[in-house]
Design a protein around this nucleic acid. Sequence first.
DNA 1: CATTAGCACTCGGAAGGAATGAGTGCTAAA
DNA 2: TTTAGCACTCATTCCTTCCGAGTGCTAATG
Lengths: 349, 349
Amino acid sequence: MELTARQKSILRAVVEIYIETAEPVGSKSILAHSDLNVSSATIRNEMAALTEMGLLEQPHTSAGRVPAPKGYRFYVNALMDEHRLSLQETQRLNEALHLKMRELDRVMDEAGKVVSKLTQYPAFALTSGKARVTVKRFDVMQVERRAFIVVVMTDNDHLSNRLFRLPQDMDRDRLQLLASLLNGSFTGLTLEEFTPELVRSASNAMGDGSLVSMVVSFAMEVLEEQQSKLVHTAGLESIFTHPEYRDLSRAQPLMRYLSQEENVGALSVPEGQTTNILIGPENVHEALKDSSVVLATYDMGDDTRGVIGVVGPTRMDYATVLAHLEYMAKGLSQLFGQQRLPTAGEKEE
Amino acid sequence: MELTARQKSILRAVVEIYIETAEPVGSKSILAHSDLNVSSATIRNEMAALTEMGLLEQPHTSAGRVPAPKGYRFYVNALMDEHRLSLQETQRLNEALHLKMRELDRVMDEAGKVVSKLTQYPAFALTSGKARVTVKRFDVMQVERRAFIVVVMTDNDHLSNRLFRLPQDMDRDRLQLLASLLNGSFTGLTLEEFTPELVRSASNAMGDGSLVSMVVSFAMEVLEEQQSKLVHTAGLESIFTHPEYRDLSRAQPLMRYLSQEENVGALSVPEGQTTNILIGPENVHEALKDSSVVLATYDMGDDTRGVIGVVGPTRMDYATVLAHLEYMAKGLSQLFGQQRLPTAGEKEE
DNA sequence: CATTAGCACTCGGAAGGAATGAGTGCTAAA
DNA sequence: TTTAGCACTCATTCCTTCCGAGTGCTAATG
């Protein structure tokens, strides 16, 4: 695809004006926007050429031009300026990252909300569930005569705990025994390796089946939870700010799509890239065929990657959205990275 | 407000037909629906009377009747049959309650989703944050030479933990000291009572300020988290199934309202009631003036109440929605109640 | 006196033009 | 190669007309 400098200017102008106004761009408005010293007739000729090449489209004969998906693609790849975040924008993004609450759920929820507020598109954040998680360590602590706490630490250094209450008193020695049994038999195992036989033999050693199985099933819940994907969406309602979704028949499928976790959870960035832009028909899912998706990945520590992204009309402000997402992703990576630094890092449940 | 039996039948018929069809109800369709042995003219006369009383409305002169808010109110208070849940419905509801994951966040999220799916209205679930929470107990456990876990147990028996890593080795005695300092100075205090002086004096006793303040700020985060209200909304997209929100200008304000946590968080049930129905103008918030809200409370254990509810058009299927919400609320109460029974109960996070 | 048949009337919504105007493509001149 | 000029296109807007469901009223009926 060879374009003259003038054609590039025109394409750029069409994309940028259209991103702003959401209305087909006529030859005269391009004159105003770009600094080309030619007449509108010349521009019309060039636009005809760009349309020929599939970079622009005409909604109908007597209307201006609108960027075709190929046109956006060209713009994104070759023409787009990098958007510089304003101080205000970075502040907003930082706020979400400096939350008091460090729970994974909350951080991601907040990250999505802020991105959505700033970009004015629906946003989502997701963790890619870890493939195999194991328990690294069990701790058992008595808190009352009839109650004790179990703390489970998984190999990704995540901690979970639960309080167990018992019908009768518990003595120190039995708790010790429980702890050593758990640490002896159930560490280093993935969820699948928690077999009933294992539980049975541990129960025998303990002389009390219900106690062991209660704690083990707790551990299994923890593993399951760590394996599962988290999907958070935010700002669904903001799609209405964009005229392309004024029509319910357009908005509804997109909303349906976004409110199904399995859909959003399937969005991903190819190995080796940190961001990804999918324009209109480049999307696989039917519901996204005339929307665009911008994605950025963040690093979650134990070499898993999370994804944060935004969905909107193909007429999307790609430069700005990309900048916001990259900033937020970088921040999230740092946040998660911090937690495993050898200097006073921290990890929460 | 005195109504004859016939007027009641007619009002009931209008409400029920309208709930189903969403179209103004004419005198003839009432004949078909009810078993009155009168002519349409008689019904017209009665409808005129009901309109006079403010129970019905006429969208325009030549249309059928539509229930007025007062009409719905009368229906809900006096005419409505109790909806009996089908086996399928109770199963769906039970699934959400028997989740593997017991985290508060997840349970509520799931509860909202299921209710929304079943009722086809947007749903929400919220906890009313506890007014004053204190730390009941700190536990400190060493896990590696340079890492230890702090477990904070609040007076509502909630557990939180965090892993702390240190730049240099830590010995047992110092950890013991830390634990006893924490338990000595910081238990039984509300968030406001965590003063800088307290931290300073503890730091002095410890000989290391950063260690104490790290752990204390963790404890403060925990308290803050316990105090904060949780708001979960689900099924926003389902408002589009209802013709009254086909018009974006109707749907948008409601969606905006629902996506603001502070709005939804403000919905509540008066002391002494377990459910509440707010019809159209009975709602305080402007955005709900022509929608209805149905709420049910559940018991969260330490005499706080959570709320679960649904928002929809005034033409809402009140009987069914109420049944779903009551069932779910009862289930949630049980779920939370269980966790503090003296027999092998459990608590999460 | 309550009920009903009959009929004129009302009014929202659908259907069909006509007018408007932004923007194009083409032709012929510079 | 560029540009001025002009005929042409077509979505949008605004009227008008038509249709019919459903009413309210009147006069007749048991």
